[in-house]
Design a protein around this nucleic acid. Structure first.
Lengths: 248, 248
DNA sequence: CGATTCATTATGCCTATACATTAACGTTTA
DNA sequence: TAAACGTTAATGTATAGGCATAATGAATCG
């Protein structure tokens, strides 16, 4: 699992890895001054552009800070951060080695209520599609999904039955590049979700709420995913975001 | 709040933003072929290095894929992903505008049990420091922290009282650059945490477990943070990670 | 007719150079 | 002594070109 790339790839990568290593291992503590470009140039016997590119990348990744005339310095880590991937539910179930299925419980087209407009970040009236789904891993309820789709943004959704493809996956195909905001909470299950998930009322559930916007910041969809608490686990990895991604 | 940078900054940024926009808005769908470097060169009346740099950055951010001879293509989004920042608890409380405090409830040095060695990813016997803390926002319990520190990795921890600085912050100062793995769950509070958080047994709590490793992948610490479920909310942002960060 | 070779094309990576911008520092001047 | 000024070391941005590599298609040869 540990970086077992045989050829040390490009000069770029080598310099970048070297410096990154020094920082990650703590050999260069926060505040440490990184050799100036001309020194690195001599050290690696390369041109300035090359080292500059490397340092720029590191700066983008916020591992170093660059100050004109003074030089570059190892920056102080901002706080604990992680890259959290919330996969498609189908993928998630598949990863457990269980057969996946889902059912649409409810589907209505209507005007958004005041509260819903708030969630979607709208002032005006909008027409939305409300969908409720249940996702199953084998026979077992895996997740309860409550979704609102902004029909102004995705009018085709009105005609879709969502029998083949679940709303989430369908939307991802249709509007591939989106910005999203997530809120993750633990709550006690209220009556409806408890029943649908086959758990007791008040049992702990993990709730993930996501508002998805297109780049122009029009809200596309709002979704609330409710997972039985003790069954499900969100896994996130990494603190310092990887800069050079060599082997996938 | 929306990007109100007056001068369109560098040529770099402009090209990058242009292309990014086209992808994010969906004008260029996944699979779309991006103009070859020579075309972009002509289009922006600049040198090849400049466009190459831009495309390289986009490739790093995984928004495009580059194939020799074939050209560059808009890549398919992998799945929903987000950048989740789990801040320092002190910062978190401060953000709520509440006075922060914490207390050390328990602190023992001992050998790690088999189960704990598992958590830390150790085969051999190791000596650990076990600490339990309670974090408060005002008078209200905010978070219950259970922590193990690997004393082989951070021997100084044995002498530390953790009265000034909470263990999390203390460690971050000491071993600044780390990799971490997070697991997030919703569970019912068991007796001890319920009592300490002033909630009922079985009430929903948000549990975040984190194993922190240094770059050489030696485990530094394992921590379990338990938050009262309905009070606390984890917020995560962004799907496509931002490439160009202009205004800090 | 099929296999090999070869040129073309487009990316990947690097060098060398240039000028712009900034900020720290030292020197001069009021 | 302090403000004003110039110098210079560092980064920031860009140009122009080079060789390497991989895929594709066309030309050539057995």
């Amino acid at each position: 699992m540990s970086d077992s790339s045989p050829q040390p790839q490009s000069l770029h990568q080598r310099i970048l890895n070297d410096i990154q290593q020094l920082i990650l291992t703590g050999a260069w503590q926060p505040g440490h001054k990184i050799p100036v470009e001309h020194e690195l140039m001599k050290q690696y016997n390369c041109s300035r552009m090359t080292v500059s590119k490397v340092l720029t990348q590191l700066a983008h990744a916020r591992m170093i800070e660059r100050r004109r005339k003074s030089g570059s310095f190892v920056s102080r880590p901002h706080s604990q951060s992680a890259v959290l991937t919330i996969p498609d539910i189908k993928t998630e179930v598949a990863a457990l080695g269980m057969p996946y299925s889902f059912e649409v419980l409810h589907k209505v087209r209507r005007r958004a209520s005041a509260e819903e407009r708030e969630l979607l970040g709208f002032e005006r009236a909008v027409s939305v599609l409300e969908i409720e789904c249940r996702h199953l891993a084998g026979e077992r309820p895996f997740c309860f999904e409550q979704r609102l789709i902004n029909l102004e943004a995705v009018p085709e959704a009105a005609k879709e039955t969502f029998e083949e493809t679940a709303p989430g996956a369908w939307l991802l195909q249709r509007v591939p590049w989106t910005l999203a905001e997530h809120r993750i909470r633990a709550t006690g299950a209220e009556a409806r979700s408890a029943k649908l998930l086959g758990i007791e009322r008040g049992a702990a559930v993990l709730t993930i709420e996501r508002t998805t916007r297109s780049a122009q910041s029009t809200a596309i969809t709002f979704v609330r995913l409710i997972y039985p608490g003790d069954q499900h686990e969100l896994v996130a990895t990494f603190s310092p975001e990887r800069v050079g991604r060599s082997a996938q």
